[in-house]
Amino acid sequence: MTFKKIRFITDSTADIPESLLEKHQITVVPVFVNYDGSSFADDEKELHREAYYNKLQNIRPFPTTSAMPPSLCEKAIMQVAEECDHIFIVTVSAKLSGVYNAFRLAAQKLPSDRYTLIDSLSTTTGLGWPVVIGAETAERTGDVQQVIDAITRVRDATRVYAALGTLEFLHRSGRVGWAAAGIGTLLQIKPILKVEDGEVKSLAKVRTFSRAVDELINAAHAHAPLDRLVVLYGIDIEGAYAIKERLKDIAPPDQTFIVRINPAIGTHIGPNGLGVVPVSASWKS
């Protein structure tokens, strides 16, 4: 079997740390955030995430997010195709976004044996980790099937959990279903969300943010020992470091990253939200 040169394309919701993108030569196509009558690419140039979160509270009407046009996907695919034998395109869950479909349409320009299109059934580093570990596997084996196996196993071993500082942003964005019946009740709640089977669901509802963070810790512990870990934040970087500290016993420090969450999720859960994305070490066995 010949060793194939394999490259990865994903979307900007994957939240892969910059250092890993460079190391594995991963191509990222940005999704778009729409507000103030314009559309901004989530690429840290048109849209700077930190600045965006700082002003999110005051943006009226409330921003929306959208998939990139297929033409942008096509451009990326064609460019990468020239440098490799096989392309892996891994996207945010098709149930959450039109990104998968945009890539599906764009990829039809290539012969079907030149690429593999995979729905991560997740988002943020629930998408990012399968991509990174898939890339590592590709570099080691050069084998398409082994990469598919690795991505599938990592996908099953990775979970996304997010704690919301407030329900306000879910409310305003209209994604209230994510908190499942948590809105319009007599007592305010702080939901903890999880991504499961490609959808955002409610994991638990608590009364205080500190309890919500405790739930994140508990959720991460349920997957211990961890192979990798990402702690997600919007603007509360201190909160993110505190979570990292509390999980240091179950996650290898050199495989733990603190990442600012993408606006496709952050817009809905609000800038003060925090999250964890643990990868259970069980994917290796």
Binding site: A180, A181, L187, I189, A204, K205, V206, R207
Partner: peptide
Amino acid sequence: GIAAMFEYANLCD
């Protein structure tokens, strides 16, 4: 009682 009901809802919804 309300704190307990949160747990109930989380486990039994």
